[in-house]
């Protein structure tokens, strides 16, 4: 464990908790893409199946359980409890255009052709594009609540910190995971436009240039 990976995990946890609390406190999921949250729940489900097969550390296991619990709770709040506030008219990204190619690619490019490994690869590829419905929805509505921009900032920051973690681990441990690194670069690049707006405009509740 290094400071970059720890900060990255905490940033990811912050993003997940910020979103869950925002929906719970305001009792509304306006401006939130339910499709992205469904994809994140799928990412955690397919990636953390090793919860049943291997124990790495208390930290590892507890964080995985927290991520899975929070992501399912978020999906539940969006599609069940506060369904009336779900903005389905603007959450129209065709997620099949993400899931199908990612599914195919995970069969073609992976570290090992075993079920757990293919599911892990699928979750890595899917995570890199899972935020697209949310970014697409914001570009359609042309605005984002302040708290939503903070969610996106921490969500994007986490994988950027993981990129630094991978440089660190390559330098000190001498190997790297090409699949995770390439997907992580793609994922972080998708946030660049948002990062620019978040930092220059503060983006605190102001309307985004469409």
């Amino acid at each position: 464990m290094n400071i970059f990976r720890l900060t990255g995990d905490l940033s990811h946890l912050a993003a997940i908790v910020i979103l869950l609390l925002k929906i719970w406190k305001t009792r509304s999921c306006a401006g939130i893409s339910g499709k992205s949250q469904l994809l994140f729940a799928l990412v955690f489900t397919t990636r953390y199946l090793d919860l049943f097969t291997s124990f790495i550390s208390l930290y590892n296991t507890s964080m995985k359980l927290i991520y899975i619990a929070c992501s399912y709770a978020t999906v539940y709040l969006i599609y069940m409890k506060f369904k009336a506030t779900y903005d389905g008219n603007h959450d129209t990204f065709r997620v099949e255009f993400l899931v199908v190619p990612v599914g195919g690619l995970s069969f073609l490019v992976n570290h090992d052709f075993s079920p757990l490994e293919i599911l892990w690869t699928f979750s890595i590829y899917l995570e890199s594009v899972a935020i697209l419905p949310q970014l697409f929805m914001i570009s359609k509505t042309g605005e984002a609540e302040t708290i939503t921009t903070h969610y996106l900032f921490f969500q994007g920051l986490y994988r950027a910190l993981y990129l630094v973690n991978w440089i660190w681990r390559f330098y000190f441990e001498g190997f790297f995971d090409l699949i995770a690194v390439v997907a992580g670069v793609v994922q972080t690049i998708l946030y660049c436009d948002f990062f620019y707006l978040y930092i220059t405009k503060g983006m605190s509740g102001c309307a985004l240039p469409a």
Binding site: D50, S54, S57, M63, W120, Y162, F175, F176, D177, A180
Partner: peptide, 10 residues
């Protein structure tokens, strides 16, 4: 091989 996947990462 010089790269393999990390199994200890979230």
């Amino acid at each position: 091989k010089q790269w393999s996947r990390w199994k200890d990462e979230l």
